[in-house]
Design a protein around this nucleic acid. Structure first.
Length: 221
DNA sequence: TAATGTCTGTTCCGCTAACG
DNA sequence: CGTTAGCGGAACAGACATTA
């Protein structure tokens, strides 16, 4: 259909930028396929890239310009006719900006989901604490909503910890000792809290029954 | 008409097998 | 073990097709 009228007479680069980036290269072929490291099927790199690009309102050419790649390469990646090297993908994501881990945690099918059934909540908790997150992927979102369940005696950490952000919530059931900035308070059903996450804080179920808290965190932990 | 996406042909690089 | 040729694939430039 389309014929290339003149063979490329321009001198080509001795090495492509992607392959010249030593920080991300290894001797083994390092390309990115359509499955995650854990082997689970996932949206392909192409679908993810298209999703992220459109999320940022960029055309293939604009994204290519920012990343220092050819627009045809972006198109091929999105159509999954090629698997980008880690170097190339990194350049693309750096131009957005986005981390590789964020990119591969994206699920374009879920990102647009508005309503979540109970069994669709993602449990991000551990150690006697169930933290059911609304939405499986919060990339690009400033807010995290959790349904927290604490087994009797369960605590978020042995020592209070701090981090950037704000958090607040309401105790639905049970007795939860909330320690913020060295001040401890036992909250019961209907009680709430709101504080800067920069203050050292800790949660502990001091009751005999399971404690339930609905909380909001920004940014997501 | 400009912007955008797709396609084709070419070049270069890395891997692998064959060979000395 | 080192070298070399062949092969596959990433990335490129540029042209064509589509759409607003």
């Amino acid at each position: 259909m389309k014929t290339k009228t003149t063979p490329s007479a321009k001198p080509r680069k001795k090495s492509t930028p992607a392959k010249a980036a030593p920080a991300v290269e290894s001797s083994a072929p390092e390309v990115l396929g359509a499955t995650q490291a854990n082997g689970e099927p996932s949206a392909g790199v192409g679908a993810r890239l298209r999703y992220v690009r459109e999320l940022h309102g960029l055309s293939q050419r604009e994204l290519a310009r920012r990343a220092g790649l050819n627009h045809g390469t972006i198109g091929c990646i999105e159509k999954e006719t090629i698997s980008p090297s880690v170097g190339s993908l990194r350049k693309i994501l750096d131009s957005l900006p986005m981390m590789l881990s964020e990119f591969f945690s994206l699920d374009p099918d879920i990102e647009t989901q508005v309503f979540f059934r109970r069994d669709e909540l993602l449990d991000v908790g551990a150690g006697g604490i169930s933290l059911l997150q609304v939405g499986r992927n919060l990339t690009g979102r400033p807010l995290q909503i959790l349904l927290e369940r604490y087994a009797p005696g369960a605590e978020t950490a042995a020592q209070p910890y701090s981090h950037e952000g704000e958090e607040g919530g309401v105790v639905i059931q049970g007795q939860v000792e909330v320690t913020v900035g060295g001040v401890a308070k036992v909250l019961g059903a209907g009680d709430g809290y709101l504080f800067s996450s920069r203050l050292p804080h800790r949660f502990r179920n001091v009751g005999d029954d399971e404690a339930v808290v609905v909380s909001a965190n920004t940014p997501p932990l």
